[in-house]
Each structure stands twice: as structure tokens, then as C-alpha cells.
Simulated scan of single mutants.
Amino acid sequence: MTTLTHVGGPTVLMELDGWRILTDPTFDPAGWRYGFGWGTASVKQRGPALSAEDVGTVDVVLLSHDHHADNLDDLGRALLPGATAVVTTRPGARRLALPNARGLAPGETTRLTAPGRPPLTVTATPCRHGPPLSRPVAGAVVGFALAVGDRSGVAVWMTGDTVLHRPLRRVARTLDVDVLLLHLGSVRFPQTGPLRYSMDGRDAVELLALSRPRVAVPVHYEGWSHFSEAPDHLRDTLAADPRAGSLVHWLEPGIPTGL
């Protein structure tokens, strides 16, 4: 069984076969405004359900990207040196310059071991954090597929911040996923009009049809001013599709949930 605790935004504590894994650490309070480059910015509208101290010891941090504050903020960054391993993008690992940081490109894998626990295999999956040709602006981003011990299949797949694009569809068809952690929200900025930088509910329905996980958990869809899809609309979109609606589990922030 996998236990998930949603801290807020993209930040989830995963307890998986003795491993304590934290995704995209964000612990700053609400009300702060952060720049994202090229004139774009966003305001954090909701603080974390738990503090970093409440979360406690972490073995692994899965950091989809280090250069946007809604995925790594100041208090989240302070937590990184205390983790056994921080797995992120190759450019992110270089920027962090931490001895525990491991950089992966999409398709690359790293294997983590610890006494008394099964090995944890982390494979980076493709992300495109915006429309075509946006990578020079949006930067490198990855998702993560986690496998435990010698079991077949993926225990958890975290999509990371991405639009639905061809490499993501291709990976979704090949993975045998237990729990799918979906980054949604349909990010938009006034400066770039209708262009989207993350998936919306309709994209989630398509991705679920391709990947067919045992359960899907939406995260990172509220609490920031740059999300353009209202949470109620997202819920209605997923509930309206009988295949998607039966798979989706909504987490209560701060409450450990076994899946």
C-alpha cells in the first residue's frame, strides 16, 4: 500500500515500502508573489497544510524542476540538504550543486538503496512545460516513475508540470501504473494569452484513458493565481467521464491516505 499526504500545491509525502519520498517541496506561506521569468509571475494563495517540521525526515526528494517557486520555494529549498537523495533534472542538479543531487534526463534511471528496504528505481519521464518551442523559456522539467524492488510495474507515476504532448502519450501507453499523480491546473499568464503551460481536466481524461492506472490523484491544481481552470470545473470534467471518474481520488490536505 502507498500512503499519500498532500501538503499543498505539488507537494506530496509518499510513504512507499519504508521509503519516505517528498515531491516538489513548497512550504512558504500564502501571499508571496514570485516571478517566473519573461515578465510572468504568480501569487501563492494558499499555504501548506503541514510545515517542513511536521513532515519530518525525508529519504528522497523528487524535484520536477528547481527554477519555478510553485515547485520549489525558499522553505522547500532549505529542506533539500537533509534528504538522502534529491532527484531532479540534469540542469537542476547542476544549479543546486548539492552532494545528494542526482540529475536525470527523460528516460534515464537511478537506483536508490537503503538498509532494510527494497531498492527504489526512479525513472525520469518526459515533460513539456508549455506549448511547442517553449523549452528555452520554461526550462527543463521531468516527471518520475517509481518501481520498488523486483516487482513489475510502476508503483507511482508523478507526471510533473507538463502539457499533454506526444512523448507523454507514448510513455502513458507503455507504463503499468498503480498510482498516477497528476499535475493539473491549466497554467496561463496574461502575457501569453491562451497558451497553456500545464494540463487541464480534458487532458487528464485523455491521459487516464491511455495509462489506465489503478487510481489517479490530482494535485497542483489550486492555490496559485496562475491556474486558469477552476477546481470545481476540474472536478466536474473528471466526474463526467465514467472511466476517469471511477479512477480519481481527491486527497484531503494534511491527511495521510492509504491507496
Rank of each mutant, 00 (worst) to 15 (best):
F227H: 12
M199Y: 06
S186K: 13
R170D: 15
R212E: 13
V205D: 05
S225R: 04
S186R: 15
P218D: 07
S211W: 02
S211H: 07
D176H: 04
V171F: 01
L210T: 06
L208P: 01
A209N: 15
D203S: 13
R196D: 06
L168V: 15
H226C: 12
Y197A: 06
T237F: 04
L210V: 09
S246P: 04
T237V: 15
P218H: 04
D236C: 12
Y221V: 02
L180C: 09
R188Y: 05
P231E: 09
P231W: 09
R214W: 02
G193F: 08
L234V: 09
L234F: 07
R212Y: 03
V219Y: 00
R202G: 14
P242V: 04
G185K: 00
V205L: 09
V219L: 03
S246Q: 15
W224V: 05
D176T: 10
H183M: 13
R235H: 15
V248T: 01
L180W: 04
G193R: 13
H233C: 15
T237H: 10
L247C: 09
L247E: 04
G201F: 05
H220D: 12
L234W: 01
L168Q: 06
R169C: 14
P213N: 03
V248Q: 00
L184Y: 05
G193K: 08
H220A: 11
E229F: 01
V187D: 04
L195V: 11
L182D: 06
V215A: 13
P231G: 09
G223V: 03
R169Q: 14
G245T: 01
L207E: 02
V217I: 12
E222H: 13
R212T: 10
L184F: 07
Q191M: 13
R243N: 14
D236A: 15
V179W: 00
L184K: 04
P231A: 12
G201Q: 07
R188Q: 15
A209M: 14
D232Q: 15
E206M: 11
D236F: 12
M199A: 11
F227P: 01
L182E: 02
R170I: 14
V171K: 00
S225K: 04
T237C: 13
S228K: 01
L207F: 03
S211N: 14
V248A: 06
G193W: 10
D178E: 15
V179Y: 03
P190V: 09
Q191I: 13
H226A: 08
S211E: 08
V219D: 01
V217P: 00
A239I: 08
V179I: 08
L175H: 06
Q191P: 05
L175Q: 11
V219W: 01
T174L: 14
E206H: 10
F189E: 05
S228C: 10
R173S: 13
Y197M: 03
E229K: 01
L247I: 11
L210Y: 02
G185L: 03
A240M: 06
E229M: 08
L208S: 04
D200Y: 10
A244K: 01
E229R: 01
L234G: 00
P167S: 04
E222A: 15
A216C: 10
A230V: 13
V215F: 00
F189T: 02
G185V: 02
S211Q: 12
P218Y: 05
A244N: 07
A240V: 09
A240C: 11
Y221L: 08
R202W: 12
A216F: 00
G245W: 00
T192H: 09
L234D: 01
P167Q: 03
D232T: 14
D178W: 04
A244V: 06
